[in-house]
Every structure is written in C-alpha cells, then in structure tokens.
Design a binder for these strands. Sequence first.
DNA 1: TCAAAAGTGTTGTGTGTACACCCATGG
DNA 2: CCATGGGTGTACACACAACACTTTTGA
Lengths: 263, 263
Amino acid sequence: MPPPSRPVAGAEVPPGAALLPVTVDVVALTVRDDALHVLLVERGVEPFRGALALPGGFVLPGEGLAAAATRELAEEAGIAPPGYLEQLGTYGPLGRDPRGPVLSVAYLLLAPDFGLVRAGSDAAGAAWHPVADVLDPGALGFDHGRILADGVERARSKLEYSPLATAFCGPEFTVAELRRVYEAVWGVRLDPRNFSRKATGTPGLLVETGRFTSGGAGRPAALYRAAVRAPGIQGVGGSAATGDDGPASVPVVLDPPLLRPRS
Amino acid sequence: MPPPSRPVAGAEVPPGAALLPVTVDVVALTVRDDALHVLLVERGVEPFRGALALPGGFVLPGEGLAAAATRELAEEAGIAPPGYLEQLGTYGPLGRDPRGPVLSVAYLLLAPDFGLVRAGSDAAGAAWHPVADVLDPGALGFDHGRILADGVERARSKLEYSPLATAFCGPEFTVAELRRVYEAVWGVRLDPRNFSRKATGTPGLLVETGRFTSGGAGRPAALYRAAVRAPGIQGVGGSAATGDDGPASVPVVLDPPLLRPRS
DNA sequence: TCAAAAGTGTTGTGTGTACACCCATGG
DNA sequence: CCATGGGTGTACACACAACACTTTTGA
C-alpha cells in the first residue's frame, strides 16, 4: 500500500525536530434554562468510541488554528455557530492520546443558545449538556475533562473583567437576561436591583436601543445591545477571518469590573 | 545522503492531518535596576540572523512542552533558571516563519535576576534587555514582538490577582523590594506606606521570617518569604517535572487583589 | 543631631450591599 | 386591584488614597 499523499510541512526544519499531529478542541459554552451548558459529541470512532468528548479534530495542512476550530464546529454542530472565540491553551503532546503523541490546542467559544443540526460527519451527534453533569473527571474521553474545567474557569473570570457576558445573549437582550447569564456561569444569585444599576452604569457594556419588551408579566424591560462587537466567528475582521492564531487578544476591559461574590 | 533519523509521531493518525514542527519560545522576565527586563538572544543562524529574538527552539521527539521550554532556557542561558513558568499561548502555524508552517507554544517565566553563563549553543549570546527598549514592533525577529507584548501584559495582570510578584524576588525579601517589583512591572509609583500595609495584610502573600535587614540606611526592614512556593522550574512536583503540559493552572488567588492604579 | 528608610494612625471619599420603596404592565 | 417583574433611593460597612506622625538605624 503506497503511503497516502500527506503534505508534510517544515521541510527546512532542522533534523531531530519532532513533527507532531495537532488537534483543535473546542469548549463551546452557552446558557440555556438558566444553566451553563457545553457542546459535546459522542465519539463514533476509536479511541474512546461511545464516550462523550469535546468537538474537535485534526488541523489540516495549510490551515490556521482558529480556522480549524470553526471548521470542526461547523462540521460537528451542523451550522457555523455565532459567538466569541478565544484560545484557551495547549495540551500535550505526551500521555493524552493512546494513539501516540498529539498536541491539542483548545479553544473557548461563548455563544448564544444556537440550534444544532444533527449531521455530524465523524461524530454520532452533537448536543448540549449541562456542565454540572459532566464536570467530574472521567466523564469525558481523552483529557477533555480537564480542558472543560479550564474553559469553565476561564469563562467565569472573563465575565468579571470583560463585557463578554453579552456573547451569551442574542442581538438584543434585557438586563435580567444578562443577569441570568452571570448567575448561570458563576452559580450564584445576584440582587436584580443592584445588578441593574451596575450593568447600566458600567461604561463599555451596554448600549440602549430605545426599545422595550412587551407581552411578559410585569413592567416592560429596556432592551440593550452589546457595546462591543466581540471578535468571533461571524464578526468581519475577527480572529478566524484574519487568521490571527494567537491567544486571547485582550478585548475591552470592564472598568469598574463586575466582581463575583467571594466566599 | 540518507534521510536523518527523525522519529515521526502519530503513525496511527488519520491521513490528511498535518504534521507540524513545534517550537517553544520563552518570555523570561525579571526586575533589575528597578526596571522590567526580558531575556533575549542574538540569533546566530537564519532566518533573522543577527536579530534579537526570544530564547526557544524546536520540541524534540518524546519531549513535553514544559520540558522543552526548560531545556531551551538552560541551553541558551547557560544555567537552569529558577522562577515561575506558565504557558502563555500558541501562535501560528501560518505566516510566522519564512521556512514554512511552524507552530509555536510560548511560555512565560517570572524569575529573580539570575546570572547568565554566556555559552549558548545555537545563539550568539543571551542577555537581559530592558523591556522598554524592545517593546516596539519590529525590534525582534519572527512574531516575537507580539509574543513579548502578550507576556508583559500577562505578567501585569497576574500581579494583581496572584501572589506571583514574589517569583521575581529571592528567597527572602523586604516589602520595599516587593514594591519595586510592582512598580517596575506596572510602570507606576506606589505609596510605600499604603503598599506595606496592603502587602502584609493580604493573606497568602507573605510569611514573616522574624529576621531583619541590616547595614543599609534607615530603619531595618522585616524580611519575608513567599507564602506560596510557585510551581516552576526548580519546584519539586512543578509543571516541568510532572510533564503537566497544559495552560496556566491557576495558582493561589490573592483576595483582596492588589489592583494597579487605573488611569 | 540629622538624614533616610520603615512602619502606624487617621481621615475623607468612594464603592458595594442590603433593602425599602415606586413604576408599569397583564390578568 | 393584585401579582409580577423592572427600576430608583438610601443608609450602612468597608476599602482605599492621602498624608501627618513615630520608630529605628547609620553617618
């Protein structure tokens, strides 16, 4: 059997250097039913066949990291998801894949609750799972339990110092919806009155639309848009489009920060 | 000429996946003469021959990321440096090395001012440079200017929420030395009286030794040790030793934080 | 005795928190 | 008119910035 055509990069690289396969894994988080959820696939092939895992796959020749992340998400979720994408960290290459050394670059996606099209190619199906159900080590294949824990912790701290909570919301949202995002991600209850004041009084977080909700119970709530269009998958000029394959370029900083209650 | 013996990992990896050379680059920071300095090498080989660059090199077969970082540092600085090591981010693989696609995993080292042994193997020499002198884009080869900027920003924010400022100090130090670390990294002047109260009153930052300085001008200062032995190169059970090749495992958190002055 | 550096006391200002209270809608 | 949720006013506690002041050494 002839070897498959596999373009190998780094022909000018010094001898002795390792050539490693690289995967991209995505921790895609959303808030649904007032709880933090993560997008997981059921693996259809070995290793860890049948187990839950983060969506992801191998980087292809000529492909950038962020591009690989969005491609894998699109393949396994069935659609190109909206949201904010940032690099989480790199794991490996030793002792994390039974097939041998594999480097894995993890990405974090914060997204509104987008619908899934069940047509994964190499996965039996992708679905949202409550994070609380799968946070214990061993619930996921590979070292994805640790990656998920790192992603959740990153999201929790990002909400304090950046306006990225709005990445979980749709194009227009109320202060109460934003508060439920904070409550779900942090796992706490926040005072609605103080939160409203804090959110509307923090520069760089919200912009008024002048519109209001209607139809629900109680007084109509003001509708807001995110003050910053977070760099992300759909954003023109965002990370994926420009091939900016570095770690998180610090977005706009919240000042004063919205600190989570300390125990 | 027979091909060099190059163990190629990932034999069971699906065809079509890229096999990439991976480098590790280190942003090694220290404080000397009340200014933040970074360890740089003058490149002795192409590409960017003669230019300044971050110390680093290719990951070898069978080697972990953190192990590669410490090995490169030891090779290019001449000694195994002390300090705290954490992963900064991953860059590439496209458009950052004229030789072709190369993935680069950057690490951040916060270290006391350790002496250098000028015996680099593939570098003409390693030396400390004031960060202010080389922060402008284009001062360094490759994309190392951006990596340095990311590392400096990471260090600045780490000092607010973690006790890692002590990683810049020796085994015993005074509150004034610690204050000069904060002043150098943040580029601000801090009130010595208020800083002293804040530092000594923050749990998890300092432990008294009962000893005092002597010989200098003025009243002797109390000597302290770091409350946390930061995971790092020399620490038993640290990242490098255990092959823990993930991103920053969040160390002890400072509560209350030591916030830098906002403009 | 003076200069220098370390460390403490005190006070004004601001920010977070708790909660009383008012506003606007649907049933 | 009442329930429901949205939003404002206000008092208290606490934390930080500013700076006067004391302590302890070397010259």
